[in-house]
Amino acid sequence: MVNFNTSEVIEILGTIAFSISGTFTAMQRRLDPFGVLIIAFVTSIGGGTVRDLLIGDTPVAWMRDTQICAIILVTALIAMFFKTQVKKLRITLFLFDSLGLGFFTMLGLLKGLAFGLNPSMCIVLGTITGCFGGVIRDTLLNRIPLIFRKEIYATACILGGMLYFLLLALNVESVFAKVFAITFIFALRIVVVKYKLSLPKFNF
């Protein structure tokens, strides 16, 4: 049986997804190649950096593992090279952003567990890891971040994290619990956007 570290696999897949998401967002804003790379980078490592600083895991992950930076760079360059083949940037951006959200939320949960935190704090870390790269990206691009709008975004991370711990409590094997939770977050994002579901807004 092949032994593999699921956390590493999740981190690689999440990094690729968010790097593509950041690249497409930057290209929509007509940034130059350097600007595109910067946005891809902050989208991919922003949430993890905030997470690691909060729990005191320094130097932060991408400073210890140059593979993360290499993955972001290669992914962004490939996405830019094939930009003319990607006609529907909006839906492509949405799909990769949703995938990254699921992968990085799970990565944050696992990091919290590795540091011995209780489930509620793990869910907080998962939400931060999943959302804050997008917050930094949107702030740099002068957009209101999704997490602050009525669209269900952070809520998907929270519900996915709760599902993960519920499955563990029901003695579901850890690998399957991870897959179910990531899939749930991804599917929930698709459903709420397709049917225009949202949390209520406060009007003053």
Rank of each mutant, 00 (worst) to 15 (best):
residue 56 G to E: 14
residue 92 T to V: 13
residue 104 F to P: 01
residue 64 R to W: 14
residue 73 L to T: 05
residue 89 L to A: 05
residue 91 I to C: 01
residue 61 A to F: 15
residue 100 G to E: 11
residue 104 F to A: 03
residue 104 F to S: 03
residue 94 F to M: 10
residue 63 M to K: 13
residue 79 A to W: 08
residue 61 A to Y: 15
residue 95 L to Y: 15
residue 80 M to D: 07
residue 83 K to H: 13
residue 80 M to V: 03
residue 100 G to Q: 07
residue 100 G to N: 04
residue 91 I to Y: 14
residue 61 A to Q: 13
residue 71 I to H: 02
residue 100 G to W: 09
residue 71 I to V: 02
residue 97 D to I: 02
residue 76 A to W: 10
residue 66 T to I: 15
residue 101 L to S: 00
residue 56 G to L: 12
residue 73 L to D: 06
residue 77 L to D: 06
residue 57 D to K: 04
residue 69 C to N: 14
residue 97 D to E: 11
residue 103 F to G: 00
residue 76 A to F: 11
residue 57 D to F: 13
residue 105 T to D: 10
residue 76 A to R: 03
residue 101 L to T: 01
residue 78 I to D: 12
residue 93 L to V: 09
residue 71 I to E: 06
residue 68 I to G: 03
residue 86 V to G: 00
residue 100 G to T: 05
residue 89 L to E: 11
residue 56 G to C: 12
residue 85 Q to V: 06
residue 81 F to H: 10
residue 73 L to R: 02
residue 101 L to N: 01
residue 60 V to H: 14
residue 86 V to K: 01
residue 65 D to V: 00
residue 59 P to V: 14
residue 96 F to M: 06
residue 80 M to P: 00
residue 83 K to V: 06
residue 92 T to Y: 14
residue 83 K to P: 04
residue 95 L to T: 13
residue 89 L to Y: 11
residue 98 S to E: 06
residue 78 I to R: 05
residue 64 R to M: 12
residue 77 L to Q: 06
residue 87 K to A: 08
residue 75 T to V: 03
residue 82 F to A: 02
residue 87 K to E: 12
residue 97 D to F: 09
residue 100 G to A: 05
residue 104 F to Q: 03
residue 76 A to K: 03
residue 76 A to P: 00
residue 97 D to N: 04
residue 79 A to V: 05
residue 56 G to F: 15
residue 72 I to D: 05
residue 97 D to A: 01
residue 86 V to F: 12
residue 105 T to V: 08
residue 57 D to H: 09
residue 93 L to Q: 13
residue 69 C to H: 10
residue 83 K to N: 11
residue 96 F to H: 03
residue 85 Q to E: 09
residue 106 M to D: 08
residue 95 L to K: 11
residue 92 T to H: 13
residue 105 T to E: 09
residue 81 F to V: 03
residue 55 I to M: 06
residue 84 T to F: 11
residue 66 T to L: 14
residue 59 P to I: 14
residue 83 K to Y: 09
residue 70 A to D: 06
residue 64 R to A: 11
residue 71 I to Y: 11
residue 81 F to L: 08
residue 101 L to I: 01
residue 85 Q to G: 05
residue 63 M to G: 05
residue 90 R to V: 12
residue 74 V to I: 03
residue 54 L to T: 04
residue 79 A to E: 08
residue 100 G to H: 06
residue 96 F to T: 02
residue 63 M to I: 15
residue 104 F to K: 01
residue 85 Q to R: 14
residue 83 K to F: 08
residue 77 L to W: 08
residue 87 K to H: 15
residue 92 T to I: 10
residue 58 T to N: 10
residue 95 L to F: 14
residue 68 I to C: 04
residue 54 L to R: 01
residue 54 L to Q: 05
residue 92 T to S: 08
residue 105 T to N: 14
residue 84 T to M: 08
residue 106 M to T: 09
residue 59 P to R: 07
residue 100 G to V: 07
residue 74 V to Q: 07
residue 57 D to E: 15
residue 97 D to C: 02
residue 96 F to S: 01
residue 86 V to I: 06
